[in-house]
């Protein structure tokens, strides 16, 4: 358990360094998308491992996965397609 937490922490820190390096060394909308994807993947790891959702009831697990899916789609879609005209 402690080992798993340590590995997760190590992975998250390396992923942060990776997105920082990616952003510093390359340009373009794909880099931005990749950085956002990495961010949501990290968010998923925090939820599943640190917040122990993977041990939780199926309902909570699905709600969390649903939030991740919706949030990731909404953020990346806005990043790509905005400004769109809002209704009304």
């Amino acid at each position: 358990m402690t080992r798993l937490f340590f590995l997760t922490w190590l992975f998250l820190s390396l992923a942060s360094l990776l997105s920082w390096w990616l952003d510093a060394s390359m340009q373009g909308v794909w880099v931005g998308t990749a950085v956002l994807f990495v961010a949501f993947f990290k968010a998923r790891m925090v939820l599943m491992v640190f917040m122990e959702v993977r041990d939780a009831t199926p309902l909570l697990r699905w709600v969390c996965e649903a939030w991740l899916g919706i949030a990731c789609t909404a953020v990346i879609a806005t990043y790509w397609f905005a400004p769109f005209s809002l209704p009304g």
Binding site: S16, S19, G32, V35, A39, F40, A43, V46
Partner: peptide, 12 residues
């Protein structure tokens, strides 16, 4: 913060 960091600091 994990999501806020790339949004504010990284996206170019």
């Amino acid at each position: 913060w994990i999501i806020l960091f790339p949004l504010l600091y990284l996206l170019h």
